[in-house]
Amino acid sequence: MRLSRRAFISSASAFTILAYLGVPNAQAHMSIASEPEDRKLIASVVRAMFPHDRFPEGPYLRTADAVIKKALGSPASALELKSGLIALKQVGFDKMSGSEALAHVKSMEGSPLFSLVHGTTVTGLYTDSEVHQLLGYEGSSFEQGGYIKRGFDDLNWLPEPRIEEHPELAKFLGAGPKSYAVAAN
């Protein structure tokens, strides 16, 4: 759960890993998502899952980087990402319309690539500071004196409600149950 955006962005540029390919002591370099198209392809999967028309490519690409970074955590997950990308290329995912892409993503549910992308996006895309700005979330506030003078109560499309408890609350809570036992279920 430890998320440092800067950390995963910077190390995501190291797109190569040492992968054990089943042969004891035999190491091989495996190149994962080393081409820019791969990064774009992953970003388009993220966009198909979590479509926000008004989001530019940046946050989606950064999420793709996080996906790659996570996949590089083990040879097995790197392999899963690589095979997932090959399959997406084979079906022409990059040419699909929004609804086709969503339908295809649905058909991928349960696959390792789906879990990898979904899990990373939930914690990656929505922690991105550009996304926070786009969504209108102002975030950290203590150093600015909180929101007490910055709109915590600026909603004006509804009447001002009561904040005190209703005078009959104590009586209501003390009155006891409406009736005794429930029918045994």
Partner: peptide, 16 residues
């Protein structure tokens, strides 16, 4: 009592 924040305004008006 604490003052009404925005989320509470929606909540309390709905309650009413």
């Amino acid at each position: 009592p604490l003052p009404a924040n925005n989320n509470y305004k929606v909540f309390a008006n709905g309650a009413e």
